[in-house]
Design a binder for these strands. Structure first.
Length: 271
DNA sequence: ACTATCCCCTGACGGC
DNA sequence: TGCCGTCAGGGGATAG
């Protein structure tokens, strides 16, 4: 499940390939992946140069010549791949973007068909505002996080998963973060002292930087644009480890259902 | 403000 | 072997 580190890894892979290339064709094999008007999407993209690649939270952006942008969200099983232009598409390949004088193509693949691409009408800022996305988790500052958590009675896990609080954390990194911080996923946001929020913000940035350094977590479907798996799954401490001893205190890791998600934590050293 | 539930979708997995 | 039910989960919508 791509979260911020996986989307950042994809963005970096695309930055080495896309900028400066001009789109020659868009082949759509499953129009449902295009959240905006599919005909308009293809018309606008064709003939346009890609100028850059951006990211906010779990959203990936392709910046096109003329100020238009495409937003991509991979949801659970979406993949963005760079493949030889003649590679045969498999049954989960929903969209291909071809480029002028280029032997490779951009492929959007998604087993579960939850992921979406969308041609934006306005600016990235307008899109983030309309989607009510919070600040990007990779660079969130303590003051901003404190403002967004203070006085909230909801649990930390629910708040951190909520993309309008903070954009980029998903189920895996939230559980790992709360384990590192020795905080219970059910701990109320309002109960955190200011210095705890400061440590939490620093912990979020550090965890995400480390995961990006390992090129993300490959548990089910995630691979980078070259088809390579990440390595952060080798360092997970609690996620998916129900019954294993806590690496800090030895108590058994428990799995509970919190904020609508399977949640792993240590019942002894997280409070 | 916040929670719960459903939906989208497919592959994996357990039970029989 | 094979059939069937269940589950997983990001995020949007909707009900409470």
């Amino acid at each position: 499940m791509p979260e911020l580190p996986e989307v950042e890894t994809i963005a970096r892979g695309l930055r080495a390939f896309l900028p400066g290339r001009t789109i020659s064709a868009v082949r759509c094999r499953f129009p449902g992946v295009i959240a905006s008007d599919p005909g308009c999407f293809q018309r606008v993209l064709r003939g346009r140069r890609v100028e850059g690649v951006g990211r906010h939270g779990k959203y990936l952006f392709l910046h096109l010549q003329g100020g238009r942008s495409v937003a991509v969200h991979l949801r659970m099983t979406g993949q963005v791949l760079i493949q030889p232009v003649h590679a045969p598409p498999d049954s989960h390949c929903h969209l291909e973007i071809l480029f002028r004088r280029c032997a490779r193509k951009l492929v959007f693949r998604d087993v579960r068909k939850f992921g979406r691409l969308q041609l934006l009408e306005g600016s990235i800022e307008e899109f983030l505002c309309a989607r009510r996305l919070g600040p990007d988790a990779l660079t969130v500052r303590a003051e901003e996080l404190h403002r967004r958590l203070q006085g909230r009675k909801r649990g930390l896990k629910a708040a951190l998963l909520d993309q309008s609080t903070l954009a980029g954390l998903g189920n895996i990194y939230t559980d790992e973060l709360l384990f590192r911080q020795r905080l219970s996923p059910l701990r109320s946001c309002a109960s955190l002292r200011r210095e705890q929020v400061t440590r939490l913000a620093a912990g979020i940035r550090a965890l995400l930087r480390q995961a990006i350094g390992k090129e993300g977590t490959s548990i089910s479907d995630y691979v980078d644009p070259r088809g390579r798996a990440g390595r952060f799954q080798l360092t997970l401490k609690v996620y998916g480890r129900a019954g294993s001893p806590c690496p800090r205190c030895g108590a058994g890791i428990v799995r509970r259902w919190i904020a609508g998600r399977g949640t792993w934590s240590c019942p002894r050293c997280q409070s």
